[in-house]
Design a binder for these strands. Structure first.
Length: 484
RNA sequence: CGGGGUAUAGCGCAGCUUGGCUAGCGCGCCUGCUUUGGGAGCAGGAGGCCGCAGGUUCGAAUCCUGCUACCCCGACCA
């Protein structure tokens, strides 16, 4: 086997492994514009499946889709102070059109709170108009200094929900409900366990009162914010004058929320489940669930293919997403190729199988080879796909637990923890820490060890009593980790 | 934005120090035959404005100058 065909090992260079894996699996390719990528069909279909799963959940909770323009007038961006301060450095601007300089330059949206706020102020008059529950599927732009395919690109695809409510408690309930939907989707469909929690003020969305996130652990021990949900209070209502006349005939400002997940989830999928063989996809999300490969020399091929087609049809019939690879490449090449692309299950059918009315199934998650009777193949495959789905989740959860640490109480101990892990060639992972609530204490952690607060988990595995930095009484317990 | 690096076939690279090239290697690609239960073998073949623009020279992938792009490492981020 040529060395060139193998991927860089995850342990040797995780970042190089990731870049090779997503390109070899044809999920993406680099575009000619800095920081922009092309979503190739394999990658885009993953996004389509994520969209389908989430969209159904949004609809089921009363949301409807709409679409707002990509170009946002500069004056709109200015209306919420924190918002413009947060996003200004990363905005691309349109300054010229039709050969003439524009009177007011237009930003390519980094998110749509402002333009949606503007529209809400026109649409909302009375408490009877509330709540407004909208979502949009869109592309957004953020000119990041350092880009990484799927995780951080200049343009990305996402979904942004924007809701307006008559009172605070209803808006807060909405932001929590959507966070739960994200976590449920990630865990059930993507087989990625998530930690739900609240962002600290320094990590909060620009313009939010409270931000919440779901965080997942990647295989290099780093944390990835996989989804966010914000209670925006009346900040945008004030900026855009979104008022309604309440039952008591008082003019009031609405309370808004926003929440989103992006194509970053594709990166999470790869970084959570991928291994030395390449990408590995959970069956529920995999564009191809079963790859069928015929075995045998040409003189025996006809007999094999006869049965092969029957099995293929049976799986199709059972709604299994099955594909066959009848190319001229050798079986061994195909095995490696489809494992690299992440197909959860392989079905091999050769002359010996046809004789005995069996086939060989090979699991992507464990590598296990199973001989299966062809009479009941569809049922067997479906059961096995569910088993793989469950196993991938269980494994990802076990991995996170194994690399989550709660014995660290002081910054000195955190230094020691990181040094020890590094010396042992192990991952530093996540560290549970107490925090007094002071921004300076949080900033010091980042400064010293490059760990940032991920979130304040709703159900921490333990409560920490003292601030990791200053030693004062802890007001919060949070997860610290290196993050993407 | 600071520090470092790279730019030669679709991909990965060698050649540059010491100018002489009709630019080479591996993988991939095309054709044919033989192969087929873990990355097949043999034979033949296609494919290059050596990042761009200047300069030095009889002669530049190679030396000089200036651009541009990308990558890696640090400060900002779904």
């Amino acid at each position: 086997m040529s060395e060139q065909r193998k991927l860089t090992s995850q342990s040797e260079d995780f970042s190089a492994w990731y870049l090779e894996a997503i390109q070899r699996a044809e999920l993406m390719d680099y575009a000619p514009v800095r920081g922009c990528i092309v979503f190739r069909p394999e990658g885009y279909e993953l996004w389509e499946r994520i969209q389908a799963g989430l969209d159904a959940r949004f609809k089921a909770t009363g949301h409807r889709n709409a679409y707002f323009p990509m170009l946002i007038p500069e004056s709109f961006m200015q209306k919420e102070k924190d918002h413009i301060e947060g996003f200004n450095p990363e905005l691309p601007w349109v300054t010229e059109a039709g050969g003439e300089k524009l009177e007011e330059r237009l930003a390519l949206r980094p998110t749509s709170e402002t333009i949606i706020g503007h529209m809400y102020s026109k649409w909302i008059q009375s408490y009877r108009d509330l709540p407004v529950l909208l979502n949009q599927w869109a592309n957004v732009f953020r000119w990041e200094k350092r880009t990484l395919p799927f995780l951080r690109t200049s343009e990305f695809l996402w979904q942004e929900g924007h809701t307006a409510h008559a009172d605070e408690s209803e808006a807060r309930a909405e932001s929590m409900r959507m966070l739960d939907i994200y976590a449920e989707f990630a865990e059930r469909e993507m087989a990625i366990p998530m930690v739900r929690g609240q962002k600290t003020p320094s990590e909060r969305f620009a313009g939010a009162v409270d931000s919440y996130s779901i965080e997942g652990m990647m295989k290099d021990g780093k944390a990835l914010q996989a989804g966010t949900s914000h209670y925006l209070g009346q900040n945008f209502a004030r900026g855009f004058d979104i008022k309604f006349l309440d039952r008591d005939n008082q003019l009031k400002l609405v309370h808004t929320t926003s929440w989103g997940v992006s194509t970053r989830l594709i990166g999470a999928l790869v970084m959570v489940h991928g291994d030395e063989k390449g990408v590995a996809l959970p069956p529920r999300l995999a564009p191809t669930q079963v790859i069928m490969i015929p075995i045998g020399p040409p003189k025996l091929r006809e007999r094999v293919m006869e049965k092969f087609d029957v099995v293929f049809a049976a799986l199709r019939q059972a709604n299994v997403r099955v594909r066959s690879d009848v190319s001229e490449a050798t079986p061994g090449f195909k095995f490696n190729e489809w494992e690299m692309r992440g197909v959860p299950l392989r079905l091999e059918l050769g002359p010996r199988d046809v004789e005995s009315n069996h086939c060989v199934l090979v699991r992507r998650d464990t590598g296990e080879k199973i001989t299966a009777n062809l009479d009941t193949i569809a049922e067997r495959v479906k059961t096995m796909l569910e088993d793989i789905q469950g196993n991938m989740y269980t494994r990802a959860l076990a991995f996170r637990l194994a690399h989550s640490h709660r014995h660290v109480n002081t910054l000195a101990e955190l230094h020691r923890h990181i040094a020890e892990k590094e010396a042992a060639g192990a991952l530093a992972g996540w560290v549970l820490a107490g925090w007094c609530g002071d921004d300076a204490c949080e900033a010091k952690i980042k400064e010293e060890v490059k760990f940032t607060s991920r979130n304040i988990p709703f159900d921490p595995p333990a409560k920490k009593s003292h601030c990791i930095t200053c030693g004062a009484q802890a007001a919060f317990t949070l997860w610290l980790a290196k993050a993407y």
